[in-house]
């Protein structure tokens, strides 16, 4: 599976992803982050990259497709 995902075992609800890229991430009622359905492929957009880099728990995973794909 390529694209963006959040490792739920690491997310602590800082909500940096949501604040920096609200079109790509949401926060559930308990306070944890998720990738909005359909936005898994947005990892090259600048503001999404910024969100990934600023996650304090390093919980946002990006799996890019291989060069041959």
């Amino acid at each position: 599976m390529t694209g963006l995902s959040i490792d739920q075992s690491r997310c602590q609800g800082h909500a940096r992803c949501y604040m920096l890229a609200p079109d790509t991430f949401l926060i559930d009622e308990e306070g944890y982050g998720h990738v909005i359905e359909g936005r898994e492929g947005a990892y090259q957009e600048e503001h999404v990259r910024k969100a990934v880099r600023n996650c304090p728990e390093r919980s946002i995973k990006v799996i890019a497709p291989g060069p041959a794909a």
Binding site: G13, A15, Y18, M19, I27, E29, E30, G31
Partner: peptide, 10 residues
């Protein structure tokens, strides 16, 4: 867990 939902961005 009791407090976290009270401090979400929403």
């Amino acid at each position: 867990k009791l407090l976290l939902p009270m401090f979400t961005p929403m």
